[in-house]
Design a protein around this nucleic acid. Structure first.
Lengths: 154, 154
DNA sequence: ATAAGTGCAAATCGTTTGCACACTT
DNA sequence: AAGTGTGCAAACGATTTGCACTTAT
């Protein structure tokens, strides 16, 4: 399902939350971005559009949206948080470009389900949740890097 | 490969690092534990054996061991760090009990490789790394919880 | 002997909280 | 009008840094 600003607003009202200009600004920034963003980055971008938003409100809005499942927390190699808008409902995973932060959502194809089933059988654990994140280089950054290499050959 | 205190000591010396009692204590705590431990927990346990270790040294030692690949950083649902000793070399994943922190290492069976291959084909990204963590309930905690449920039925 | 490693205290970073005011409903 | 949501300043907790002292090599 494609998430829109209207849809987010609808879901907020549905749950009794108010639709404020700050929340709108945060949602706007997240939805237009195909990159993982830190609270700080979201704050700065939102500030450019709604000059009186505060960082604290960004945090609070992110918590709310995360709890509603409209936004997902991402982690870099070193554990730092980032956020990205997310298709609500289904469990999805993220492929993040380590160079520019570009994000692609994907489902587990079915491989994941197999793996988790094997894992349960082997360990006796009951699996309740999982978390897969993949890092890579997006086509654009790959190209850029190849050009850089060519430069330095001279 | 099974990691031992001797093996860690050897690898430290090999790289020109010194084997100190603080480092020994941290390694000892990590190796004997089948649970994910926070720096604070490691500090407390190590303190019980080497009364003059400091929390700062635990952090520094964990950084070193992580960088050497002998210890892996884990993350809880909310992104908090924990550490566990790890088979060096191979890429492995972790199944963590959300109740008691018990950790089981596993490889990706092959499902992961399949998945990453499909992902590369579909997105044009080059995948450089990935990170899978699974959460569940270990057999012991499952049992405990079942007993708890029986209690409350009365 | 010497340079790496350590502990302490203080600095720092990201995040959270308390409170009076502002804005959505 | 009522009460949710906001911004600010201050609090907070985890992690890092500066520095003089200690210890493994």
């Amino acid at each position: 399902m494609e998430l829109t600003e209207q849809e987010v607003a609808r879901r907020l009202r549905e749950r009794g939350y108010r639709v404020t200009s700050s929340r709108r600004a945060v949602v706007h920034v997240l939805l237009r971005s195909a990159h993982r963003l830190t609270p700080q980055e979201i704050y700065e971008q939102a500030k450019a559009e709604d000059s009186k938003i505060g960082l604290v409100t960004v945090y609070r809005t992110l918590d709310l949206l995360t709890e509603m499942g409209l936004v997902k927390r991402l982690h870099g190699r070193e554990g730092c948080h980032g956020y990205a808008a997310s298709a609500p409902g289904e469990h999805r995973h993220y492929l993040v470009c380590t160079e520019c932060g570009a994000v692609v959502e994907f489902d587990g194809y079915g491989e994941i389900e197999n793996l988790l089933k094997k894992l349960e059988a082997e360990t006796g654990f009951v699996v309740t949740d999982h978390w897969l994140q993949v890092f890579g280089l997006c086509p654009a950054c790959r190209l850029k890097r190849r050009e850089g290499a060519r430069e330095s050959e001279r």
